[in-house]
Amino acid sequence: MIHPLDKAPEQGEAGLLKRLLRAGLPVAPTVAVALEEEFLRLANLQEQIGLLFQGVFGARIDEERLFYAAERAESLVRESYLLPERAEAFLGSLKGWQGPFLVRDSGRSPFAQARTPQEALFALKRLYASRYRVEEVLERWPRLFPTLDLVLVQEAGAPQEDPGLSLKAAELLGQPARVEAWEGRVVRVILD
């Protein structure tokens, strides 16, 4: 559900960040969030979104219907609510952090920056909604729904590539890696 980095699942980039943290590299405070599946299920969004996209893809793409379905799907996600206890847990997981905050999918560039935990919560919902933009839907077609990876929320500003930390990370991980950092702390690991 919502885990600090040291208790996050050992998958993808969260696992890499966790390894670097255990090895002693400074890593930006990070929370791994896995709420999307529950959010979609409890709001009955998968069924509603599936119905919106019926008839869009056939012998050819019905572009008018595609744009309508994508716009409506994004609205459905934005207008739905996380369980109050999940929203409280999310905000509680950021307690004591000063910000700024980055919200992003594991293994991807930052999606949004936020100044407060509440803004980070809104950014999480916008990230979920962005999965139904026309470009995103076309990129993963024939699958309508995305693979539900972890979302990382980090206490960091816009990261920049750090050659020194990249060398250390590559040595610790045993493979070529690039690191993006903010204020000397690892934010993102990209395996080459």
Rank of each mutant, 00 (worst) to 15 (best):
E79R: 10
E135I: 09
A69K: 00
A69F: 05
W97Y: 09
Q113S: 14
D105M: 11
F101V: 09
D105A: 07
Y132L: 12
G107V: 04
Q98T: 12
Y128C: 09
L83T: 01
A69C: 08
S106Y: 01
E85A: 11
F111C: 08
G107R: 02
R108Q: 14
V134P: 06
L82N: 09
R86K: 12
P84C: 07
E88T: 11
E88Q: 13
S93C: 08
R72Y: 02
L102F: 11
G96F: 13
G96S: 11
A87C: 03
A73E: 01
E63F: 00
A129Q: 05
L124T: 10
L83I: 01
P100R: 04
L82A: 01
E88N: 14
A112S: 13
E135L: 06
R78A: 15
R108T: 09
G96M: 04
R131N: 12
A89P: 03
S130L: 01
P110L: 06
L121H: 10
L127S: 04
T116E: 02
A89Y: 04
L127W: 13
A69M: 04
Y132R: 08
R72S: 07
V103Y: 09
A73W: 07
L83A: 15
L121A: 06
L127M: 04
V103W: 11
F101N: 06
E74I: 00
L124R: 02
A87P: 12
R131Y: 12
L91H: 09
L102T: 06
R133P: 05
A120G: 06
L82G: 00
L127I: 01
E79I: 02
F90E: 10
R108D: 15
G107M: 02
Y68P: 00
P117L: 01
P84Y: 12
G107C: 09
S109D: 14
Q98M: 10
R104V: 04
P117I: 00
S75T: 04
Y132H: 08
A89D: 15
Y128W: 15
K125S: 01
G92D: 11
E119G: 10
E64K: 00
G92M: 03
S130Y: 01
G99K: 10
R65K: 10
A112I: 03
E64G: 08
Q98E: 14
R86F: 13
K125W: 10
L94Y: 06
Y81R: 11
G96N: 07
K95Y: 12
L66P: 09
P110I: 09
A73Q: 05
R104H: 14
E71A: 11
S106A: 15
F111L: 02
E85W: 12
Y128Q: 06
L94W: 08
T116G: 03
G99M: 13
Q98I: 05
A123S: 13
E135S: 05
P84W: 07
A69T: 01
L82E: 11
V103T: 11
A89S: 15
Y81D: 12
F90A: 06
Y81V: 01
S75Q: 11
A89V: 02
G99C: 13
A87H: 06
A114H: 06
G92C: 09
T116N: 08
F111K: 11
T116L: 02
G92Q: 13
L66H: 00
R115S: 14
A69E: 00
Q98Y: 02
R108L: 14
A69I: 03
R65L: 00
V134W: 07
R104W: 04
E119S: 08
D105G: 04
P84E: 13
S93V: 08
A123V: 08
K125V: 14
A123F: 05
R78H: 07
L66I: 05
